[in-house]
Nucleic acid binder design. Structure first.
Lengths: 250, 250
DNA sequence: CGGTTACTTGAACGAATTCAAACGTTGTGG
DNA sequence: CCACAACGTTTGAATTCGTTCAAGTAACCG
């Protein structure tokens, strides 16, 4: 099976729409050439579709080019915990690439476009591009940091603080990607998604969000959350916010 | 300041007591030589002492040679969340080495001995030893996986399941390190530590542990937890257990 | 227009926290 | 050697927080 037959290749990395964003560190021509060659194509997943499933050992590794998704794990009886969200520029499937099979699933929250890479060329990356290798470790460490914050939130913050933290977190990440520039600035999640992230029931999540809305911190619009007062959310959560230096885009 | 004056160097990596353990992948002579050279000395931290503190930008990176510790974060008002535990063979401070300053603290649960490495030589490692570079990413991905499991547990498991999961997790990790061979096989934590890991109050943690004890799954002995029935704990938690292939020891 | 999905609300219930107090062990200073 | 402080564990009772149950509304879609 040829990869060209399976994945359409639309955007070459040299004119990637994400790369000009301020958040991403500049790449050398050589790095860019390798990444572009490393990329074997693009793939799209419809909203609600599965990007990667727990247990699977994909031959591929992805970077989100556009769209939102989330990583989650489930217990046998169906209880679901959302671990983190993925947005443009985020690499997905790295953990699976290193550890063998996927230990979590990833689902699309909106139509998602992915850059597709071949796992098998990772060794080459490590051999020839130490800077990119370092970047991969950095990316894993960043995810770890986010999970640390999340764990603190779920374990120790009250429902109200926790919800404020989560919405602020999602808002800030999207903001640095300039995802709110053109549109209405809506975080494309249902209350069920937030509930499964917060470790709360859907009913209590709703009541908590209503409280945040009553405080004029956010507003709920057609299937999404609109942040009205990011500073208020941060203060309520007791959180300094998500400060990030330039990061790699592979 | 010479590093030799600050850190005693006792064990050369070639006859590291941990390396012969089954869990660790064999290293080539060359890799071993680099790691041994990378190591600038050893450091000890007394029980209850701080190994690394949030906000600090240490010039060093460590691997635990002996003893137990834990990673945690705190909210302004003192609420503490334990994120993970560290045991012999675990690298600590990697996240800080990559992201600049530490985003969490690490405290010793028992007297701890650390192998000390210099952050500044990390670039060299990436340049000259792609296999070790890969290992570092792998180590970060492993931590991520553990945090994923933890998040699922705190977010979605009941108090009883959660406690069973945690104790089983700690037991299994210690078991693969053969930490229970000589002694009584006690996990050296107070109930306060477990409470701060589970996201529960100390009172409710106590009541939950008593239930597990009543089920003959564990026993509480002089400041520590003694596992009586690991399979029972795993079953109650609805967890398949912590399967791990050979891993690197840097 | 009937079915589905997402949001919303009230009420009853259950789980976990907080408050309060007691017990045993360990270590310390008189 | 004893008094006593410090710490960790244990238990009961009152309270708060969050869940579950139940129902209803609004928007969207085939």
């Amino acid at each position: 099976m040829t990869v060209e037959g399976k994945f359409g290749k639309a955007i070459p990395c040299q004119n990637c729409p994400l790369r000009p964003l301020e958040v991403f560190r500049p790449f050398t021509g050589e790095e860019l050439a390798f990444v572009s060659d490393f990329k074997i194509g693009e793939q799209t997943v419809e909203s609600g579709g599965t990007i990667l499933a727990e247990g699977e050992t994909s031959a591929h590794l992805f970077t989100v080019l556009s769209g939102w998704g989330f990583r989650y794990k489930m217990l046998d009886d169906g209880r679901r915990q959302i671990l983190n969200y993925v947005m443009p520029g985020d690499m997905v499937g790295l953990q699976g690439s290193l550890m063998g099979e996927m230990q979590h699933s990833i689902e699309a929250l909106s139509p998602v476009t992915l850059c597709v890479f071949k796992r098998s060329r990772l060794a080459e990356l490590y051999r020839l591009y130490p800077e990119l290798a370092y970047d991969l470790t950095w990316i894993a460490a960043r995810e770890e940091r986010i999970l640390d914050e999340n764990l603190l939130s779920i374990g120790r913050r009250s429902a109200l603080e926790r919800a404020a933290y989560l919405v602020a977190f999602l808002y800030q990440r999207a903001e640095t990607l300039e995802l709110f520039r053109g549109g209405r600035g809506v975080i494309p999640v249902t209350q069920q998604h937030l509930a499964d992230t917060l470790g709360l029931s859907i009913v209590h999540t709703n009541k908590t969000l209503r409280k945040l809305a009553a405080l004029n911190l956010l507003r709920w619009v057609d299937k999404g959350c609109n942040v009205l007062d990011i500073d208020g959310l941060l203060e309520l959560a007791g959180w300094e916010g998500f400060s990030e230096t330039k990061r790699p885009l592979i």
